[in-house]
Design a protein around this nucleic acid. Structure first.
Lengths: 293, 293
DNA sequence: ACTCATTACGAACCCCGTAAGAATG
DNA sequence: CATTCTTACGGGGTTCGTAATGAGT
């Protein structure tokens, strides 16, 4: 189970094709074929069906482990190479869209004032991508958000060693188009909305699967799926009546929309900071700015 | 970062010696030296100090990842090979000591009655070892225990895909020698005992580090450390006045000891079942026996 | 027939053991 | 000087690419 073999296994399933995976990895299709054959011999089972390429049951099991393994391998390398460059002049911050608040922006100006020269890089991406970015060292520090019971930590997939700190908590709201019949209410029971029209935008809003898990119902079925990390697109969709989404209350400035806080069950929108166990110096500075006041 | 190299890296640090690691792994000492050299070249840093053998800072980082990686690699292989033998006649159950209750024993007799032939194997070990055993397929199913807030799940290190079910909850108690001044009380505030004499027995009782985390204090310092998974030894130590330990209330039958339930903070002793995402048939049967009634 | 995966085969490379060398206590 | 790690080197095995073969639509 050489990591190289796992990597091509994942690539083959990503591309649903041996030859496409080969060119993506810079191998020849023969090499890819041999990699898969080697894995199948090693594990004593067929892992893939060919034509069309699809995982067998055994392949599905392997696919549950392989990406996590490869991620952690990258994380280990990142943790070590970070030690080489202890005082970098660059800080890369990965943000989930709804986690980037005025408070964070102010912390960045404070950081600029006290640390210089400082080359700031900001990247917006989905929550899981933030965690991956931080663990693999592509970003130095990250901001994630999600729904949780008050003062509970966010449920984070534990893919490697990292430290998280809460930095903000605020009411969780459902964003309605301003002419929606419920838009004038002052409080909401989330479960009452399970059959409403929802937009699934897991990269920006609270994922619908999370709402299902919280309410332990089978509702919250999406009418429309928004892939991407742009909040503006999402609020515009909501304003146009394509469906609802759960967002932090402070995102109420979107035109033609009205947020209504969820009062039951007791939930908050929580923002957390995540950084490696041994962060770079600027990352540590930003972390202390965001957590101390 | 070949897994073989990581394995010898871990072995070298386990044995604090290249040559000892070599003989443990069935390699020659030269091969071990080459493995470490290859890792160090690949990562561009020295990972170990020699004579005496000790990890450098970079080596410490790697040591944080390598065992988890190797474990997950084994877990992946176990998940796949399990598919090969779908109706095994053997069931291996891994138990943390305080998780093996009369209820579990009864479930095993029920299982015997309805499934046969059945070759039962029972293994007692520390909680972390149970999880590792289940993930790597050395045991088919496991029982773990710990302290948690009522109806909260146990905090389990997420080392791979597995399913957990709660199977029992009961009061958490401190076990005193029967002549201890506090042994006649009916309720306890855990924080009041932070400066008492404690026995750290992480494999059998609630680990003292967990008590520190729960109370957010710096107390609960051990006077004596008990390594091993035998509850009898622990209760005998307590009876002899060597110190206290936190255990489930039902373990009150130990001679010359008295359990007093912890009433503050609100805590329970919780037992959970853990099995792979795709358990073997007997494991599934036992799981349904333990969870349904 | 065309696309895509497998097999055959050879050259370059890697990996481990033997054995000799260096360093440390 | 004895123990322990490192280095040099060679055989055997592995890996990848080229190219030919086979299978599916």
């Amino acid at each position: 189970m050489d990591p190289h073999l796992l990597r091509t296994f994942v690539a083959v399933l990503d591309h649903r094709s041996f030859s496409a995976a080969a060119s993506a990895l810079g191998y020849t299709q023969s090499a890819v074929s041999q990699h898969i054959a080697a894995l199948e011999t090693d594990l004593g089972t067929r892992l893939l069906e060919r034509r069309p390429v699809a995982p067998t049951p055994a392949g599905e099991r392997l696919l549950e482990h392989a990406p996590a393994l490869l991620l952690r391998l990258d994380a280990a390398r990142a943790d070590i190479t970070r030690l080489h460059n202890p005082h970098p002049t660059q800080l890369t911050l990965a943000c989930a869209p709804a986690s980037f608040t005025p408070k964070v922006a102010r912390a960045l100006t404070d950081l600029r004032a006290k640390t210089h020269p400082l080359n700031l890089r900001l990247r917006t991406m989905a929550r899981d991508a933030v965690i991956e970015d931080v663990l693999t060292g592509k970003s130095d520090i990250g901001l994630i958000d999600g729904a949780a019971a008050p003062s509970d930590p966010l449920p984070v997939p534990d893919l490697g060693p990292a430290t998280t700190y809460p930095i903000a908590e605020e009411p969780l709201a459902v964003l309605f188009p301003h002419d929606h019949p419920l838009a004038m209410r002052h409080s909401l029971n989330l479960a009452d909305l399970s059959q409403a029209h929802w937009i699934d935008a897991p990269d920006t809003a609270i994922p619908l699967g999370r709402l299902r898990a919280i309410t332990q119902t089978d509702g919250f079925r999406p009418r429309l799926h928004h892939h991407g990390s742009d909040l503006h697109t999402l609020t515009t969709l909501i304003a146009a009546g394509h469906g609802l989404a759960a967002l932090p209350l402070s995102l109420s400035s979107a035109p033609n929309t009205t947020p209504v806080p969820i009062t039951h069950p007791r939930l908050t929108h929580r923002t957390e900071l995540i950084h490696p166990t041994t962060p770079t110096a600027p990352a540590r500075a930003l972390a202390s700015l965001l957590t101390s006041p």
